[in-house]
Design a protein around this nucleic acid. Structure first.
Lengths: 162, 162
DNA sequence: AGTGAATAAAAATTCAAG
DNA sequence: CTTGAATTTTTATTCACT
């Protein structure tokens, strides 16, 4: 708990902000980074455009020219395809089991694979995922609801058997 | 032949440039619009960044943040998905037959549907398509080679029966 | 580590003009 | 309608700080 790289430190703020960004993307038509700054302020999160630029880079969001002549930031379908492949491969390799309790889905994997799984699931930008926690031999995925957690569990199991 | 909106006028230049842009995308890792300006100059096409910006908007290219921390312009997979759906629908509705001669593929369709088909095929950004010509009841697709034309013909027919 | 303020760099648009 | 030059706007990065 003494340095910044641990969960629960200032790090959490970024993760939470990026979660909001993901939500905002779906609801609004955002055509510039300042819009994120403004919308986040309404949620009580104060950041500058510089931070948003970094978030966008990290989340690999893309600015898409729409048919109607406007621009809008979007989730990266492109990237998604690659990520899904990696997730599939990693899961097939390391998967042991899933467990669901309330809104949480615990994915048990072979030792050492937890962080990789968590990272990939983060990258998938599943709308129903609220947060993640990576252990050594497990990945705890916190969803919005029990229904969502079951959904994720189903998805994971389908990936493994596919 | 008196105004700028007709094929064969100055319009052709834009179309050709955008064709080059599509090619450049695949070959190079382009992270800024100036790169297009420079690469196009090597092809003998002189334009400014302003024009590239407009092309990018029109072609709906996206700037993708890569995993390695760089950016690169890409073809829009996202858009592609929608376009493919429209193409499928339109073809199923209007398709009559395909004919291949040399590097050309002639798609015969019901009267009035030619331009729509051409527009959709343009939007598909098929790498093997060199140019298009839309008639009333037909779409002439010029590919790079006879093999490519046959490939397109196969694709079109597969779409129709799918 | 993550961030903001300032700045540099890149991209979009405006304003002629062909 | 298409473009370039100039400009504005937006976005990325640098630098300092924590």
């Amino acid at each position: 708990m003494s340095n910044g790289s641990r969960a629960g430190g200032t790090l959490m703020k970024k993760q939470e902000r990026q979660r909001y960004i993901r939500e905002l993307l779906k609801a609004n038509n955002i055509d510039k980074q300042e819009d994120f700054v403004i919308l986040l302020k309404k949620e009580g999160i104060t950041v500058t455009q510089a931070t948003i630029s970094r978030d966008i880079k990290e989340m690999q969001l893309i600015k898409v020219p729409a048919t109607d002549g406007t621009y809008s930031y979007n989730l990266p379908v492109q990237k998604q395809l690659n990520t899904e492949k990696k997730l599939t491969k990693t899961l097939k390799d390391a998967f042991i089991s899933t467990d669901v309790q309330n809104e949480m889905c615990l994915i048990k994997v072979t030792p050492g694979s937890g962080p990789a799984i968590v990272s990939l699931i983060e990258q998938m930008n599943y709308s129903f995922v609220f947060g993640t926690l990576g252990g050594d031999g497990s990945a705890l995925i916190i969803c919005h609801s029990n229904k969502d957690a079951l959904k994720l569990s189903r998805i994971i199991n389908e990936i493994v058997i596919e």
